[in-house]
Design a protein around this nucleic acid. Structure first.
Length: 243
DNA sequence: AAATGGGTCAACCGCCCTACT
DNA sequence: GAGTAGGGCGGTTGACCCATT
């Protein structure tokens, strides 16, 4: 028997619905199992990723709020590129989302900052080679990750150690963060923790809305029939990029 | 109107950790 | 304790979208 090749690339609506159904059935674990029994030609990892980053109920969509932005800054300055950890403090946001946000927004800010610094100090002397910072948080990540992935004071120590050696990126990030706080006129209070959440209504995944309204109301038997998937093609959820 | 560049986001890859045998 | 499989995580890539030239 020829083993069918594992599917890659963008998910279809049909796949999404299948995945949602089977996750609902078996829970958010055993991804390999779900991948197999669902008939999706995907890896367990792929299924998990799709669920976590896109299909999970309670996911927020849209731009980060100023509060969230500040929280990301605050937590990143504390933990570095521990995206999943940071994400846990931002209900409805995924590590991927935060990572993307950080990369685009902070890189931009770093560039602006760098430009501003180079302008203001163009007549100055301190043009150390280190000022040619890598415009990417990965540099910081490498520094912070150190030899272990364990988050701890050790990491902080490592960072400080690097800083002491004159590695400027941390200062740059700190400055960015503090200028963010200044410009917003607010200092974020770390009042958001497990168990607490933002007060605004979560914007759930559109697919979830659909499923919640229709799929999950079906009884067990109807579920088994998995509703005519072809009907679902009529359902056009906004951010699908299916060809 | 076409070209281009930057921003956004979904998805994959590879490494690491953990639980299980 | 060693080996293995599954899952989690961070980094990276590439396609799409939109604004600007």
């Amino acid at each position: 028997m020829v083993k069918e090749e594992t599917r890659k690339g963008p998910w279809t609506e049909h796949e999404d619905l299948q995945l949602v159904y089977y996750v609902n059935l078996f829970g958010e674990r055993r991804w390999d199992f779900i991948a197999k029994v669902s008939g999706l030609n995907r890896t367990g990892k792929s299924c998990r990723l799709r669920w976590v980053n896109y299909l999970h109920p309670g996911l927020k969509r849209g731009r980060m709020t100023p509060q969230e932005e500040r929280l990301v800054l605050e937590l990143h300055s504390r933990w570095g590129n521990r995206w999943s950890r940071i994400a846990r403090k931002l209900p409805g946001r995924t590590d991927n989302e935060i990572k993307n946000y950080w990369r685009t927004h902070m890189r931009k800010k770093a560039q602006e900052r760098k430009r501003a610094l180079s302008l203001s100090s163009s007549s100055c002397c301190s043009t150390s080679p280190n000022n040619d910072i890598p415009i990417d948080s990965s540099a910081k990540a490498k520094t912070e990750e150190g030899t272990s992935s364990k988050d701890s004071e050790e990491v902080k120590g490592k960072v400080n150690e690097e800083g002491a050696k004159g590695y400027p990126i941390d200062r740059i990030w700190d400055e960015i963060a503090s200028s963010e706080e200044m410009s917003s006129g607010l200092v974020y209070e770390s009042c958001i923790d497990e168990g607490n959440s933002f007060s605004y209504a979560p914007l759930t995944s559109p697919l979830w809305d659909y499923c919640f309204d229709s799929l999950w109301r079906m009884d067990e038997e109807e579920n088994k029939m998995l509703l005519p998937m072809s009907d679902l093609s009529a359902y056009n959820y906004g951010h699908s990029r299916e060809p």
